[in-house]
Design a protein around this nucleic acid. Structure first.
Lengths: 249, 249
DNA sequence: AACAAGGAGGCACAAACATGCAAAAGAAGG
DNA sequence: CCTTCTTTTGCATGTTTGTGCCTCCTTGTT
């Protein structure tokens, strides 16, 4: 049995049974547990399944809900946000979409900041409630509850008449070859549009998002002006170094 | 059962039952209480649930932090909201603007409600996060932080292409002769527009708002289809009785 | 103030994991 | 066919994770 075959079977089994245990698969497919682990690792990396300790779960379409994913007090996200603050100055027009990392960043912004923030994410808008000198422009649309951003035709159209100095893009998955990708088409279209109306683009990623892929491609990584990572391991730096993106760590 | 599975179940149970007791979960999920405690700790740290002594609570709708938070749990507002629920049925298109009373109403909506909600208020949109069968359409614009609603040309323009069965108008000031009034022009314009695209209009007022006037007039009181008040004192009823508005108390 | 229930932190242990290495199995090319 | 190179697999190695148990501390309630 080929590797590909086996991996396909794992996906099939998972679709049937909702979850699998690694040791179990090992017996059923007559390969060592190590091999199964390697398979699960690859499949998870491709985003096809959700790997957990001792096995894997089916990756239900109900992606992670925003509230489930609200890792507010995540230290690494806070660190990323702090690094990003250096790029933000008074009187800029800043475009920000959704994501918990972005929310974290907004919460770190000094109350004295002046400028304009454009966003399609209600939580981001609300977080700027106390920034008296920041004008908040909300972009409407249909609310996508998984990620708490407005998307759709309205959103896209509204963006055509706007521009920004800096777009802070929430990054779901990123891979040096494939680029930045997201699970839904409308999200991809809106993000791409946002990038196109902004002078500079900033992305922040936690290590778990590096080298992962989702369904719809937003843009190649070198569309980013800045990429902020947790800490740049030598091999990661290498993967991205031929791209025209400034890596900050 | 995997750790992730178990934690997901805990969240599910919590969504159903509003609260859980650790020792109880221990039995239901067949793990030690220590493990449950660790799970609750993690979930709380992720911000998904609210941990308390001996168990956990469901985390209420994501932080309402506009300044008048205490007004939120005002008993009279809750009563008004409860009365309004009777007017809301499945499959309606409901237009709601800002205000704490409206927010209160939205929080009372049954999770099983199906339909569409159009709003220019980020807190309202976020409060509908858990209503899986309610499509939320956000209207963009410039965020007015005092009242947490989007206003301006964009808002006005977006409304021209929409319609609704019921508009739930947030009311600041109301007077039987003058009508409904608000402090800013753009707010008045948007509210008037909203009323014009809706089949029915509902207003809820606490007694302190009765017979008061602000700078910009939205519309006369008889543009309201329903007016819900705390309790109709005879003299109030008299004042409004010649108008074509149904008073509910 | 007393007292039981619940919680924090440490320890232990087995199961699961990552990693490096080498054998096996193909694939490519002469 | 043989050589060479890559891919895949299994195994041996330390390391990490998840869990239960234990002890001591904290909390809420009489």
């Amino acid at each position: 049995m080929f590797k590909q075959e086996r991996q396909q079977r794992i996906v099939d089994i998972l679709n049937d049974e909702h979850k699998v245990i690694a040791s179990d698969l090992s017996k059923r497919l007559s390969v060592s547990e190590d091999t199964i682990r390697r398979d699960l690792k690859e499949l998870d990396h491709q985003g096809v399944i959700k790997r957990v300790h001792s096995g894997a779960l089916r990756k239900g379409p109900p992606v992670e809900d925003f509230s489930t994913r609200q890792e507010m007090y995540n230290e690494t996200k806070l660190n990323l946000a702090t690094k990003a603050l250096a790029l933000i100055k008074d009187d800029m027009v800043i475009l920000i979409d959704g994501g918990t990392t972005n929310l974290q960043l907004v919460q770190q912004l000094p109350l004295s900041l002046k400028g304009t923030v454009i966003t399609n994410s209600p939580p981001i808008a609300m977080a700027l409630n106390n920034h008296k000198d920041v004008e908040v422009i909300m972009i409407g649309g249909t609310l996508f509850k998984q990620s708490m951003v407005n998307l759709g035709i309205d959103t896209f159209e509204s963006l055509t008449t706007m521009r920004a100095d800096l777009y802070i893009m929430g990054i779901y998955k990123i891979d040096p070859q494939i680029g930045i990708s997201v699970p839904s088409l409308s999200e991809a279209l809106v993000k791409r549009k946002m990038a196109s109306i902004s002078t500079e683009v900033l992305g922040m990623v936690t290590n778990d998002k590096l080298d992962t892929i989702s369904n719809h491609i937003v843009c190649p990584t070198d569309n980013l002006t800045y990429l902020i990572t947790e800490q740049v391991k030598p091999d990661i730096k290498k993967l991205y170094e031929n791209q025209r993106v400034t890596i900050i760590d």
